[in-house]
Design a protein around this nucleic acid. Structure first.
Lengths: 116, 116
DNA sequence: CTCCAATATGTGACCTAATCACATATATAG
DNA sequence: CTATATATGTGATTAGGTCACATATTGGAG
């Protein structure tokens, strides 16, 4: 590392908070990987560095394994099939917990910033 | 995962922001791994789940490789030797950048929380 | 004197999350 | 027929973190 452009301090290695974002999207209506990825590209946080779709698909897979979401194949006449995901009650509980955790995390960052 | 106690939503997998915390500590005076680890255990964020010392030592090693910090052995009459770390100018610049990044990250979380 | 605790540093193995590169398939527009 | 948008997926690598293990010094309790 010659300069700081690839340093963690640039935020490039900070987690994209993919899981809570996905849960949030699904709480506003069922969706699928490609659409979710596209939506993230429009959020300010992801605008300059939209997340690789790989992460979204793998997050969806593991979240389904954990029982937070469920999927069904949706075959419309146009385009390839979509794996349509929806929240489970457990996923809803997880989303609630995320809210608490993120509030706490924000307080942590505030404390840290105060000491910088 | 039967319940949500080991889910990412609990914040256990959120990054501990070790690097900026270490830089912050060092900006307030030279220190070494064991002392830094101990200090983290007293912070509210780490209180219930203090970071493993392994992460601290490895962060220090990689940050030294990257030129953010420098170390010298300090042999006092009492106890084992300490590897005493101090900030380099580059480390100071990194710390400044972290400040911007964390402000941005906080805004992201605010936006996300608003949609939860 | 011996053993234990506090201080202090380190390695190996493993896990999670993220990204890069690659691979595949359908339907429509030109 | 070919390019583009839509749509899903795997393999390899890296970063960061935890658990378990290993080692060394010093001072105090028994």
């Amino acid at each position: 590392m010659q300069d700081l452009t690839s340093c963690a301090c640039t935020g490039k290695t900070l987690p994209r908070l993919l899981r809570p974002v996905i849960l949030s999207v699904l709480s506003n209506g069922d969706s699928h990987g490609y659409a979710i990825t596209g939506r993230l590209g429009h959020l300010a946080f992801f605008a300059d560095q939209p997340p690789d779709h790989t992460g979204v698909y793998r997050a969806l897979q593991s979240m389904e394994k954990e029982g937070l979401i469920l999927s069904d194949w949706e075959h419309s006449r146009t385009g390839p099939g979509k794996r349509c995901y929806r929240l489970t009650p457990k996923g809803g509980a997880c989303l609630k917990k995320w809210k608490q955790t993120l509030e706490e995390y924000k307080r942590t960052i505030d404390t840290l910033l105060a000491s910088l």
